[in-house]
Write a protein that binds this DNA or RNA. Structure first.
Lengths: 189, 189
DNA sequence: TAATTTGCCTAAAGATGTTAGGCAAATGCA
DNA sequence: TGCATTTGCCTAACATCTTTAGGCAAATTA
């Protein structure tokens, strides 16, 4: 009987594609086996269990997102950097809703520490070099930016903004303007 | 055989409690039946299916959140109103993580329109009456506030801020200060 | 080519979701 | 009060998904 050529990596990548097509909740060992035209039990040689598979997809998404963020930041500073980074975030979520949902998976502390999650925080800090913030305000600002990016993108994905005017693109741009203004005029304690 | 006294409402409320205990993903028709010491099929007289149950929990959470928000806003204006509303949001998410997760459930358009979701938008608009914003900036600001609240609360719940200093309470307070400053100095287009 | 490893398979069992149809308790009406 | 109807929970059955154990054949190594 011919072999299907399963691999942990191939399963993870296919799982990510599946997530984008049917949603992260639809990523199931069974569905993935179907996609490879293979019996379900066969996947268990390459992936510990369903949770393991989902965690791998989450880590993949975090890596991809961090890579794109790093590319966007290269050679940019100030508001230019802020906007480029933010757009990467939003575009990724729109292009890859399932992966983006996966990236929100709560990881156990060890996995979280080893993940690309900390690269994000580092990059956000790098953006703030273009503004005049010192600790602890810098950390507060990192958290605020993360909150806005994630919050906006996930509300938008959930359709929260879709039934009112003006369009979400306009609000997004004005939100970035507002963040830039805020970072330039960060209130004293 | 004695009857258990099942009701759509009782199931919904018990489902909300269950969500807070084991997470919204753990809310299952089976688990709920166990909690009432009743056979699974019995629930299907009161709830269409699993999705219906989850939707009802989501609507309950949205109502509760809106009620608390309205209570917090009564008699307040300006930054006071902003902070009170925001704190309600965050406190609710911390006290009721499962319900909060439920409130994030994507509803079909009809359900969404009938939900308390729009009350939130209205209340956020009310907060902005304490600041000097006109349309379309008011809508942009509503969306920004929603993004920050939801983003901060869900990142915090996911543990994103938990392994670094300063504490999340401090960042939260400074975030509210920053939002207040931003709304008072909203950048011109 | 023979020995070993590896990859996918069959089989089986447990959990959840869902539907159909039945019996008994609660309710309404003469 | 007695009977008819409705309602509430049940049993039975089936589909889907997860996971483990053990087997056979293909690929790899010697």
């Amino acid at each position: 009987m011919a072999r299907a050529g399963l691999t942990t990596n191939r399963l993870t990548r296919a799982g990510a594609e599946l997530a984008d097509e049917v949603g992260f909740d639809g990523v199931t060992v069974s569905a993935l086996a179907r996609r490879f035209d293979v019996k379900v039990a066969s996947l268990y040689s390459h992936v510990k269990n369903s949770q393991d598979l989902r965690t791998r997809i989450a880590l993949l998404a975090l890596e991809e997102l961090a890579d794109r963020g790093a590319a966007a930041l290269a050679g940019r500073a100030g508001k230019d950097a802020l906007a480029a980074f933010a757009n990467v975030y939003r575009d990724y979520a729109r292009e890859h809703p399932g992966r983006y949902a996966a990236a929100q998976l709560r990881l156990d502390p060890e996995a979280a520490a080893a993940s690309a999650g900390s690269r994000h925080a580092q990059m956000t800090r790098a953006i703030l070099r273009g503004y005049d913030l010192t600790e602890p305000d810098q950390t507060h600002a990192v958290r605020l930016l993360g909150s806005v990016f994630h919050g906006y993108v996930s509300l938008e994905a959930g359709g929260a903004f879709s039934h009112s005017t003006p369009g979400t693109q306009e609000s997004w741009e004005r939100t970035l303007d507002a963040l830039d203004a805020l970072l330039r005029n960060w209130p004293a304690t």
